[in-house]
Design a protein around this nucleic acid. Structure first.
Length: 415
DNA sequence: GTTCCACAGGAACAGAAGGTCA
DNA sequence: TGACCTTCTGTTCCTGTGGAAC
């Protein structure tokens, strides 16, 4: 026997809990899928494809619904000889500009030996390459842009739907499917983009707890052996998902993590306690991921706030965080940022859910300002920060100091 | 109803880094 | 090798905001 041994105690098919799993039926999305199907119908009729815009919160079935219908569309289109359908799905997370989207699309249509770099070319050159690739592919091409709100300029959203009208394409027929979690994204589009991208708009509402329970039951039936889930586990996962804005993905992640923990602990069943532990593990991972994406200054800003929190000085306003942050930056031997930039880091941390902000207004006496608090467990934050603060030489073990109910004088003496 | 306060946040810009191409 | 490109991180300047004080 080798080092690894197949474990079959808990899972029948763990992949059934993954985001990319395709169930036979999508629960609770009948109305939306009917509208979506109607919007895709022109492809089968051999007509110009519609541009479709889907919006709704995270984990409400937009991407799953798209995969489900696109799979059926491909299968059905294959039955007609005069339809040549290509679908390119692109997640725009991490792609912030039309330029990056265009280079990525060019590379998707090219073979591995002929890829282009993601910088360096003039924008017009990249678009020319894209039109060449799309035309040589030909037929009907659907480009699915998931998390389309990550694109900060809308040039590509204007260029792609109008490529044929602008005579950039001669043979290919292009349709765009834009998927967004951001309700304000559509409103902020320029009118010319809105009119072309939003030909068909479909909103996906949040799931309620009952719908989440049905989704989890559907997946759990495939994923787990019979009797593995204790009573109330699915309801608890659904309740957490419903609390966090009706997010099915979060509920499924939670159930899978609980299953993984049960497997690691070599238990036969999944209990409520394991679900709670799994939630803690997932939250820890989310903090670590959020913090790892920050710059060194971002780390020092959150570090300053955590130390103030440990001294019982939160909620604390921006101007009172600044001296602490400046102090740490100087100790680290780097120039502190200007207040404007520090505010950006605070805003970013707030958006990640690591800290929270409350807007206050004292009118003529004190004006408008924000007060910040630490939203997540300080120990988890410090554990994620430890490498950075060690690197800048503030002290060697922040976790130890936090255990000792640290004060600023501790920090100063430690450095 | 108007004024005032503190600061949030948008916009324009700078400069370094990392890339392509002739 | 140098011109030219985008991206990223930062600075500077400015306008907008909303409630207390007048």
């Amino acid at each position: 026997m080798g080092i690894f041994e197949r474990d079959t105690e808990i899972y029948l098919d763990r992949d059934a809990l993954r985001e990319d799993y395709q169930p036979e039926n999508l629960v609770g999305r009948d109305t939306e899928l009917d509208r979506y199907k109607a919007a895709l119908q022109p492809v089968i009729n051999g007509e110009q494809p519609n541009n479709i815009f889907l919006y709704g919160k995270t984990g409400v079935g937009k991407t799953a619904g798209t995969r489900y219908l696109i799979d059926h569309l491909k299968a059905d289109a294959a039955q007609y000889e005069d339809i040549d359908l290509t679908v390119e799905m692109l997640n725009c997370d991490g792609l912030s500009s039309s330029y990056q989207i265009a280079t990525r699309l060019v590379n998707e249509f090219r073979n591995e030996t002929n890829q282009i770099s993601t910088t360096g070319y003039p924008r017009a050159t990249v678009y020319d390459m894209l039109w060449t690739e799309l035309d040589s592919c030909g037929g009907t091409i659907y480009i699915v842009l998931d998390e389309v709100d990550h694109i900060q300029d809308d040039s590509i959203l204007y260029q792609l739907p109008r490529a044929r009208a602008n005579e950039n394409l001669s043979s290919a027929k292009i349709g765009i499917i834009g998927i967004s979690n951001d309700f304000s994204f559509r409103d902020n589009l320029s009118p010319k983009v809105k009119s072309s991208l939003c030909e068909e708009e479909i909103q996906f509402p949040a799931y309620d707890a009952n719908e989440l329970i049905k989704i989890l039951e559907q997946r759990a039936e495939v994923a787990f052996h019979e009797g593995v889930l204790e009573d109330g586990v699915i309801e608890l996962c659904a309740a957490y998902g419903a609390k966090d804005a009706g997010d099915a993905r979060q509920s499924l992640d939670l159930l899978m993590k609980a299953g993984d923990l049960a497997r690691d602990k070599e238990t036969d069943t999944i209990s409520d306690d394991l679900v709670r532990e799994a939630r803690d593990v997932l939250e820890r991972g989310r903090i670590r991921e959020g913090i790892s994406g920050l710059t060194q200054h971002g780390h020092l800003v959150v570090y300053a706030l955590v130390t103030l929190d440990q001294e019982g000085k939160t909620p604390v306003r921006t101007r009172d965080i600044r001296p602490r942050y400046t102090n740490f930056a100087e100790k680290a031997g780097i120039d502190p940022l200007v207040p404007r930039r520090m505010r950006d880091h605070l805003g970013e941390l707030s958006m990640l859910g690591i800290i929270s902000a409350i807007e206050r207004n004292e009118g003529r006496r004190g004006g408008t300002y924000r007060e910040y608090s630490v939203e997540m467990d300080p120990k988890m934050i410090l554990s994620a920060l430890e490498d950075t603060v060690d690197d800048v030489g503030i002290h060697t073990s922040v976790a130890d100091l936090i255990d000792r109910d640290v004060t600023l004088s501790d920090f100063e003496s430690a450095s």
